[in-house]
């Protein structure tokens, strides 16, 4: 049943999208909007195909930065959250600092990173990492701390060891919250990588966007936006798909969302 609902929803979303593109096309044609101000969807479509190789190459670079940055933030964020939850010092002294740091716009340290790390891809990866790191660590800490006192009593009565309490009780209990952090993190990673490319890069979609802008090539800019939208959607839904496979009990218990 849920399957059928998805299929129907998918249909109505695509019909709406096609309708909106049609209106856009119509407006451009009817009012003779010049192509250097607003290209038609068909222009953009044909450009996507004709310049496909360039776009794909830069997309690959940006995609790599996003995935590497996000991957690093998961790799460091989850163990860091575990340390914070189990260590009094870290939860009392370090965690509040981390939350405070979250308020600093990570983009603002991009120029510093260029000074330290240079113009290479590593700067982009580090920014994508930093920007995704905080939501991931914060939601993992919240999730890992959400085990109820009674649940702990049950675990004790079952004579579970500390490690077993973590693996059988605490971690599974935290997974929905952890995945929530992943979803925010992956979206922010896309933003981080692109903005980092704006600031310092000679490749990637952010760079392509700047070059197209300088050349007043507005169709190309739209192509970049399309590619970024595709990346964002695909990655977000990939995380959602993994969540659904890993936590079959969770979505269903929320009435399928």
């Amino acid at each position: 049943m849920i399957q059928r609902m998805n299929w129907r929803q998918g249909l109505s979303v695509s019909v709406t999208l096609i309708g909106m593109l049609a209106v856009w096309q119509l407006i451009c044609v009817l009012f003779a909007v010049p192509a250097y101000l607003l290209p038609t969807p068909l222009d953009i479509g044909s450009r996507l195909i004709s310049d496909g190789d360039v776009l794909l190459r830069h997309t690959g670079i940006t995609l790599f930065e996003i995935v590497a940055g996000f991957g690093l933030s998961v790799l460091f964020g989850i163990p860091a959250a575990v340390i914070i939850v189990y260590s009094r010092y870290f939860s009392q002294a370090v965690f509040p600092l981390l939350i405070g740091l979250q308020c600093v716009p990570m983009i603002s340290i991009a120029p510093l990173l260029i000074t330290w790390l240079g113009f290479g891809m590593i700067t982009q990866v580090v920014i994508a990492f930093l920007i995704a790191f905080f939501p991931i660590i914060v939601s993992a800490v919240v999730g890992l701390k959400s085990m109820e006192k009674e649940m702990n009593m049950l675990a004790m009565s079952l004579r579970a060891s500390k490690l077993q309490i973590f693996l059988y009780f605490r971690l599974p209990r935290a997974l929905p919250s952890i995945f929530g952090g992943f979803k925010v993190g992956i979206t922010l990673s896309v933003v981080g990588a692109v903005v980092a490319e704006f600031v310092s890069s000679d490749r990637g979609l952010g760079y392509l966007q700047l070059v197209a802008n300088a050349k007043l090539d507005i169709t190309m800019q739209f192509c970049v936006i399309v590619m970024l939208a595709v990346i964002g959607l695909v990655l977000y839904n990939l995380v959602g798909l993994i969540e659904r496979i890993a936590l079959p009990w969770y979505r269903a218990s929320r009435g399928g969302e």
């Binding site: 649940m151 009593m153 049950l154 009565s157 004579r159 059988y168 936590l247 969770y250």
Partner: peptide
């Protein structure tokens, strides 16, 4: 400490949702 041979049922069922 908790001993083998003892079992406890609490007011809340405390089932693991997952």
């Amino acid at each position: 400490g908790a001993q083998e041979g003892n079992a406890v049922v609490f007011q809340r069922d405390l089932l693991l949702e997952w």
